[in-house]
Amino acid sequence: MSAATPTPAAPLDARRTALVIVDLQHDFIGDGGAYARGGAASDAARRLPARVAPVARALRERGGYVVASQFTLWPDAEGEPMISPHLKQLRPFLARGDFEAGSAGHAVVAELDGLVNVSVLKVAYSAFFNTQLDWLLRRVGIDTVAICGIVTNGGVASTARDAHMRDYRVLVLGDGCAASTGAAHDTALADLRTVGEVTTCDAFVARLSA
């Protein structure tokens, strides 16, 4: 008896689909950014913009919506960044001006210039937490979100789970994400299959309908 033929993946209505790009910012992955200065920039993460930009372009060309989340360190009354204790312990090199809204380091990487419909500023892992992302997506008629960016087991995972809890159809672009290690990345993707579909950048683009 022959093996069953795999069921083709269903097409995606681009006009009801959003690409959520998590934290591809200069301070995280750019030369001279905060993480590069602190020796914490990831080579795997630095390769993502070239992979994600064609996906954003394809979705925009078909009438879809592209959102970038930007991790933000807001200043206190003295101008010092308000860094959560766990992050300060993990990244002690973070300093005044890093991830400050409007700064060069806070900006989305140049490869995505002209490809993002809107950015949301976030203070924690999830792009939904204390942002207007859910309002924006519903306002433009989105029911499906494809998530990519950094890190797979942090901002990407939290955003995917929050999207699932809000009843969006969730896809995670596995090769459009990165973590600190390959093992952490693979484990996170395996876990995320409980809340959505894990696919690739090319496969996602191939399923988009105009």
Rank of each mutant, 00 (worst) to 15 (best):
A203E: 13
F28W: 10
L121Q: 15
Q89R: 14
L136D: 01
T159H: 00
V108T: 12
P81Y: 12
C148S: 12
A9K: 09
R57E: 15
P85D: 14
D202H: 08
V55I: 12
T131D: 00
E80P: 14
M1G: 15
Y65S: 06
M165F: 06
R57V: 08
L137T: 04
P92G: 13
F128M: 02
F71T: 07
V140C: 10
V151S: 10
T200H: 06
T131K: 03
K88G: 15
T72P: 10
T159Y: 02
P49K: 09
A190K: 12
P8I: 10
A184E: 14
G149N: 09
A104K: 09
E111H: 05
L121D: 14
T17M: 07
A9N: 06
R169L: 04
A41W: 03
A203H: 12
V170Y: 01
I150M: 12
S126W: 02
H164D: 02
A68W: 07
V170P: 03
H86W: 15
V145L: 05
D76S: 15
A36I: 04
V20N: 06
A40I: 07
G176L: 03
T181L: 08
D134L: 03
V140N: 10
L189F: 07
G33E: 09
A107F: 05
A183D: 13
A36F: 03
R62S: 07
V52K: 02
V170C: 04
A4G: 14
A56C: 09
M1I: 15
V52R: 10
Y35D: 11
L90W: 14
P85A: 13
N153V: 01
S69N: 14
A4K: 15
V140K: 11
G141F: 11
T5H: 13
A4C: 13
G102W: 08
D167I: 09
V123R: 15
S2Y: 15
L171F: 06
V205E: 10
S2I: 15
V140M: 08
T181W: 04
V156N: 02
V66K: 11
R46D: 02
T131V: 02
V195H: 00
L171H: 13
A127V: 02
I150Y: 06
P8R: 11
G105S: 07
R15F: 11
V52H: 12
A157H: 03
M165R: 09
G64L: 06
V172A: 02
A188D: 10
Q132V: 09
P6R: 12
T144H: 14
A34E: 05
T152S: 04
E61N: 08
